[in-house]
Amino acid sequence: MSLIDDEVELPATVPSRPACRVGPVSLVRRTTMIAITAGLLLAAFLLLCINIGRGDFAISVPTVAEILFGGGTKVERFIVMDLRLPRALTALLTGLALGISGAIAQSILRNPLASPDLLGITAGASAAAVALIVLAGGGSFVGLLAVLGIPIAALIGGIATAVIIYALAWRGGVQGYRVVLIGIGFNAMLIAAIQWMLISADINDVARAQVWLNGSLNGSDWAQVWPVAIGVAVVGTIALISSFTLGALRLGDDNARSLGVRLQTGQATLLLAAVALASIATAAVGPIGFVALCAPQLALRMLRTAGPPILASGLVGAVLVVGSDVIARTILPVELPVGIVTSALGGPFLLYLLVRNNRKVSV
């Protein structure tokens, strides 16, 4: 038999991961990623129930879950739904926003140190809020100004700082290390400006600003929950829809262009979403340090993906903030603002990332 007449049967190609098609949309089903994400969602809900149940009037986790789904007595429903749930939901939504924000920033800039609290975005929001507190004064700081003034000022301050940093870092495109260096410089200047305002302000305004600057969830109510929930829902949905663009941007500028991504438009849209989420979180409860830095890196190591996953990073951020609030309220001898606990946990992780990056550069 000649070689031409022989029929060689080639092995059938089997996809490494099963595909899932819904109409024109085709997705890859990653079982491990789905399982870990579901586990994070369950952990966030469990911590939410624990946070709600702890207090002077203790309520068990099963009872809290029952009340959340419509059960329980009238007194228990009042304690859970009116007194404790707003604070717990604010913590969860804030952590979700910070986690997603950090994942977007680190993916676009391709730098694990690129987070809103290190780039100066959080400091810009804080500086605007502190300026409003100091300039408004104790007597006029009431009513609508107290409810809407600080969140709006913090949102404007964060976005304005991001625009300035982006413009200064622009040189035919945006480079990760250039943005990080400029952001660190801006962060230092804004912190100095905040300290100057605190030194020159009235002692009562300083006390109010100092509590806010430590990232406090005290006094959270439904008036705070709804703006954060709407902002996270809208901007977070945009970020999830743009996950393909984010994945392409992780491959580098040339590869992203070859995949049909409009580079500058995609970068600007996603960075604006990251800044908006960080500013919304800061406007709600004040600056909460290191969550946007740690959450994406923890999610990356848990799921072993090419870059920080958006949804899992948000869930890790929610777990960190709600868990830190449980520690700050019930485990420590004195109740502390949640931002102090997250900073104490995130500081060592920042040192780990710096040492790890230094070793990579040395190699």
Rank of each mutant, 00 (worst) to 15 (best):
V206Q: 08
L132V: 08
V211M: 10
V142D: 05
G176L: 13
G173I: 14
G183P: 06
V130L: 09
L132M: 09
I165S: 10
I152Y: 05
R171E: 15
G143D: 04
I184H: 02
M197W: 09
S140I: 07
G185Y: 12
I156D: 00
I164T: 13
I184Y: 03
W212Y: 14
A160S: 12
P151T: 11
L132A: 05
I199V: 12
L132S: 04
I164L: 15
F141M: 08
R208D: 02
V147Q: 01
I152K: 03
Q210D: 05
T161I: 14
L135F: 09
L213V: 07
N214G: 10
I194C: 07
I165E: 06
I203N: 07
D205M: 12
Q175I: 15
G185P: 05
I203W: 06
G173N: 14
L198M: 09
G139H: 10
L145C: 01
V130M: 10
D205H: 04
G143Q: 04
G137V: 04
G172D: 09
L135C: 03
L198P: 01
V163S: 06
W212E: 06
L155F: 15
L198F: 05
G172C: 09
Q195G: 10
I159Q: 01
V211N: 06
A146D: 04
S140R: 13
Q195D: 07
A201Q: 03
M197R: 08
G183F: 13
I150S: 05
G157A: 13
G139T: 11
A136C: 01
F141I: 05
Y177G: 08
I194A: 05
A160I: 14
M197I: 07
A167I: 11
V130S: 08
Q195F: 10
V211S: 09
I203M: 11
I165V: 15
L144A: 11
I165Y: 09
L135N: 00
A162Q: 02
V179G: 12
M197V: 05
R178K: 15
L190R: 06
V163H: 03
A193T: 10
I159E: 00
A188P: 01
V179W: 13
A167Y: 06
N204Y: 10
W212T: 11
L144W: 07
A154K: 08
L213P: 01
G138I: 06
